[in-house]
Nucleic acid binder design. Structure first.
Length: 297
DNA sequence: AAAAGCCCCTGGACGC
DNA sequence: TGCGTCCAGGGGCTTT
């Protein structure tokens, strides 16, 4: 479930169960996900308390009392399922996590965290594009997963001047430019499509349209920055998007997918006011792009 | 250096 | 019912 709003939602859903809880036992069911687990991964977590959770780009970070950070990435299909032995029904409506009171385990439950509170949290990932590792807190920024990451799109560091500077003289498409985590960290296929539509920009345009010949911002840069922030904020407010998961009916689903303007709407009418166009689907760098040829120029 | 492809993996939807 | 093809919210690595 993995773009920035979904990871943020998962973080918020897990926090009441993980923060301040002590990990008593970790059951690691295979040696690797996308990458091998680090040496003694499970053992290094035993008896360690989770101070708090945070998010950087699409990474979920568990800050531990032993000075390490549990780095988790959900890939395409990763999710967390909570078996709340305590039966805390108040938390049952949190989006982003799946709450179960019956222990239905699946062969895709790869890591199972047991806490001193009785809560059990399972990491389930059918396609195994996700991964986990442990990094010393003070070395996080220089770690290979983090050292080249771009700015957080919801921070003040993401602004028109920054975007113009990065786009200056770049011939890559706007779609690929926005998907590049080294420039903006956390956007994925859905929210890039949605933001470009909101900004009225074609995904096929060259990124350099976002900069003047001096490398400064222009109206398009301003519009795109505003669109990215707006679409992400709305998605987070809605608890993220839930796709292709019709099994869970326990109130744990985000609902931003009902607000998609273009994503997944091939051949349907453009929803922008006064636009008579319809949504097209093309393939860019091997992935679907949805956009309206009429109002995205 | 920048940009474009390829690949990892499983399973659901669809056409025949 | 079964089989083949395509597709899926990511990103690292290799090739041009």
């Amino acid at each position: 479930m993995p773009e920035l709003p979904e990871v943020e939602t998962v973080k918020n859903g897990l926090a009441p169960f993980m923060e301040n809880a002590v990990i008593t036992y970790v059951q690691q069911n295979r040696p690797d996900l996308r990458f091998p687990f680090p040496d003694n991964f499970a053992k290094r977590l035993h008896g360690v308390q989770v101070k708090h959770l945070s998010r950087r780009a699409k990474y979920l970070l568990g800050h531990l009392t032993n000075g390490e950070i549990l780095v988790m990435h959900l890939g395409m299909s990763g999710r967390f399922i909570i078996d709340d032995q305590g039966g805390d029904e108040k938390n049952a409506k949190k989006p982003g996590v799946f709450l179960h009171h019956n222990q239905v385990h699946s062969s895709h439950d790869h890591v199972i965290f047991n806490f001193n509170t009785g809560t059990v949290i399972r990491y389930n990932d059918v396609r195994r594009f996700g991964f986990m590792t442990l990094v010393e807190e003070r070395k996080l920024q220089q770690h290979k997963f983090f050292h080249s990451l771009g700015v957080e799109p919801l921070s003040d560091d993401f602004n028109a001047a920054y975007l113009a500077e990065k786009a200056f003289q770049k011939s890559t498409t706007l779609k690929a430019f926005l998907l590049n985590q080294k420039i903006i960290a956390g956007l994925g296929n859905i929210y890039v499509c949605e933001a470009l539509h909101m900004a009225g920009l074609s995904p096929k345009r060259e990124a350099q349209v976002l900069a003047t010949s001096q490398g400064k911002a222009n109206r398009k840069t301003e519009a795109l920055v505003r669109a990215v922030k707006t679409v992400l904020q709305k998605a987070i407010s809605a608890g993220g998007s839930t796709l292709r998961d019709h099994r869970q009916a326990d109130g744990s689903l985000g609902y931003f997918q009902h607000s998609f303007q273009v994503y997944g709407r091939e051949n349907e009418p453009c929803l922008k006011a006064k636009c008579q166009g319809q949504v097209s689907r093309i393939v860019q760098s091997g992935r679907s792009t949805f956009f309206c040829k009429t109002c995205q120029k």
